[in-house]
Design a protein around this nucleic acid. Structure first.
Lengths: 184, 184
DNA sequence: ACCTGAACACCGTTCAAGT
DNA sequence: ACCTGAACACCGTTCAAGT
């Protein structure tokens, strides 16, 4: 990669982070290019779609979330580990306004640039879920997709109303996924 | 209201219904005006905002949902009545793609043209919730806002992935709101 | 009293022409 | 190889001028 190309790439990423943080993931791509000091087409040559830009921006963070799930497999309580991770996932999905919608769509859409990363997160969550199920804390019929959808939906609520309302729904949702024999 | 004004109003509503059904609530207002055969500004004079248009379009349906809650107060099972109503509410919030986001936002935003109707729906749900709580089926700490948020969030999931996934999350959510003593 | 349609200030995306 | 910037086809919203 040529030096000027690399510099443009980095500047675009940096401006995108700022502008997405301020205006959400639907912010104007034109403004990102403008603020990065490059022409319109340069943005498109580096990032063919908005999702490609998001993917580059979130790559490390999503990897970290997957890693965190692996680490939590060593946590003494399988149930608690799952809850801790779910909250971390919530925090991740709300870094930019509107991001949660992209993440939810991308899990089903294989053509999305975010699909692989979302799939990795789902699989990471699945490990924690399976462990909690084996320990008897969670219903056997709960799927990784259920968990993924729950986390994203409560993040969406948190975004639309208040983070506290999102937290409440997460608690109800997880409780509803617990085994009947589990003490509450 | 002048006869031509009335006719334009009706045509705009009819076209909006068609186009929202096809493209979701973020569809082009310009296209609605175009298809209704009126000028751009005419749409704005009748409906100052997109939400005002939505409100006129949904008024009857939202009233019917509130009425349905009242009727269900006579249902023999308080728990079952709540679940039946929640499913009806889900169906309502998904008539147009993207509508659920407007409905969720409008409950907190008093300036929204949809606010009053959303508030009425929330209150209607509250009656059913309170009855289920009095009967001992639902936790006492569940609020009408929790119920409203749950319904909208699972509708959102249904829209982003599949209706079946939305249904599953509704079941988990409601279960999580049940009293611990409730048989499962 | 209501309607028209141009005007303004924005978009996303593409692609020939440059360096 | 990469970048530029004009071109195209769209938007939402406002408002003077008409009838």
């Amino acid at each position: 990669m040529r030096a000027d190309a690399r510099r443009n790439y980095e500047r675009l990423l940096a401006e995108a982070a700022t502008i997405f943080a301020e205006h959400g993931v639907e912010a104007s791509l034109e403004e990102i290019a403008r603020r990065a000091g490059v022409a319109n087409g340069t943005l498109y040559s580096h990032f063919p779609t908005r999702q490609a830009l998001l993917e580059a921006l979130l790559r490390d963070r999503m990897q970290a979330l997957s890693d965190k799930a692996r680490d939590l497999l060593d946590h003494p309580s399988a149930d608690e580990a799952l809850l801790i991770w779910a909250r971390a996932a919530m925090a991740h999905t709300t870094v930019y306004r509107g991001l949660v919608t992209s993440l939810m769509r991308s899990i089903e859409d294989e053509t999305s640039h975010l699909h692989a990363a979302c799939q990795a997160v789902l699989t990471a969550g699945e490990q924690l879920l399976n462990r909690a199920q084996a320990a008897g804390g969670m219903r056997a019929d709960v799927t990784a997709s259920d968990l993924y959808a729950l986390i994203n939906s409560v993040s969406w609520v948190g975004e639309q109303t208040s983070p506290a309302q999102g937290e409440r729904l997460l608690a109800f949702g997880i409780d509803g996924m617990r085994s009947a024999t589990d003490s509450r």
